[in-house]
Simulated scan of single mutants.
Amino acid sequence: MEISVLPETLAVCRLRASDRIPSWALELHEGFVSITRTPDELSIVCPQDAVPPDTQVEEDWRALVVPGPIPFEATGVLSALATPLADAGIPIFAISTYDTDYVLVREQNLERALHVLHADPERQLITSGSPYEPVIGFSRAVRAGSRVLVSGTGPVMPDGGCPESTAAQARRCWEIVLAALAEAGASASDVVRTRTLLTPTADAEGAMTAHGEVFSDVRPASTMVVIHALLDPRWTVEVEAEAQLDA
């Protein structure tokens, strides 16, 4: 399905059902504005920079839109967007108009949502949530048919920190790799090749031990090389993996 993204960052506002529609909403004559009144609330969706600071609001939404007009007799249009996003664990806020449907996703989920909705059934893009993925233009892993390729993976902790020892860093790298493989429907037993990049100050024995903890029974083809440096000066190790699934 063809979809496009509205340029504005939107806010979803809640006012009391008895409130008048505020002037800051009525005066928005350009861009996206949706105003809905029910017996329980007055809901306004509009550009975020128009909302005054004392408003109850959920911020940082982006709108995906299906080109319209969509005939009223058409079925399954909203479901075609909502279902794959739900399967990917992406929350949505849906709005329908006379002409078409809008699906709002959090700005932090926008790139992932587009990947999900544009995905080739033979090509699956896996994200780890890194802020660099949309900036650089890469995926943590890509499943192309029966192949799964995991990008170079550094020892990044959820809080942005980094373990101190090479062995602990390598274990964290493989933890991230295994999570990406699992999302692609693969596991360590499917891995056919690994690569380990070490800095001159790395503890090679520690990296080897961590590799063996994951792959001692799998025995993939493997390469370990020493390079000048890695992207983050705290890192002493970075890894890659390739897996092959049954066709």
Rank of each mutant, 00 (worst) to 15 (best):
G89D: 06
V77C: 06
S43Y: 02
E30F: 11
R37G: 05
F32A: 12
T55R: 08
P69L: 11
V45N: 00
L26V: 07
D60Q: 12
E27K: 13
C46D: 05
V57M: 12
R37N: 04
D54S: 15
D60K: 10
P91E: 04
D101M: 08
D54G: 13
D54Y: 11
Q48K: 08
F93E: 09
D40Q: 13
P47K: 00
P84S: 01
I70W: 08
A94M: 08
D54R: 11
T75H: 03
I90W: 01
D54K: 12
H29P: 00
T75N: 01
D49G: 12
E30A: 14
S96I: 00
C46H: 08
A80P: 02
D87C: 08
P39G: 03
P47V: 00
F93Q: 10
E30H: 14
Q48R: 10
L42V: 07
P91L: 03
P67E: 08
Y98N: 06
T83H: 09
L85D: 00
A25K: 03
V45P: 00
F93V: 07
D60Y: 05
S43R: 11
G89M: 07
A50T: 07
C46R: 11
S43I: 10
I95E: 02
L28G: 12
S79A: 14
W61N: 04
T75I: 12
V45S: 00
V51R: 03
I90C: 01
L64T: 07
R62T: 04
P47Q: 01
L42K: 10
I44W: 01
W61T: 05
A82I: 13
G31M: 08
V51G: 01
D54A: 15
V77K: 02
I70A: 12
D87M: 09
T38F: 07
Y98T: 06
H29A: 10
T83Q: 12
T38A: 11
D40Y: 13
T97H: 11
L64H: 04
A88S: 02
L28C: 15
D49Y: 15
E59K: 14
E27F: 05
S43V: 07
L81T: 05
L64A: 06
G68M: 10
L78Y: 09
E58R: 14
P53M: 06
I92K: 02
I44D: 05
E58P: 00
E30T: 15
P52Y: 09
V57S: 04
G68N: 07
P52G: 07
V33F: 13
G76E: 00
D87S: 11
D54V: 15
I90R: 01
F72G: 15
I95K: 02
I70Y: 10
R62N: 05
L64K: 00
S43C: 10
G68C: 10
Y98P: 04
I35F: 08
T55S: 03
A88E: 00
L78N: 06
A74M: 13
L64D: 06
R62F: 13
L28M: 14
P47M: 00
D49P: 10
T55G: 04
T83A: 09
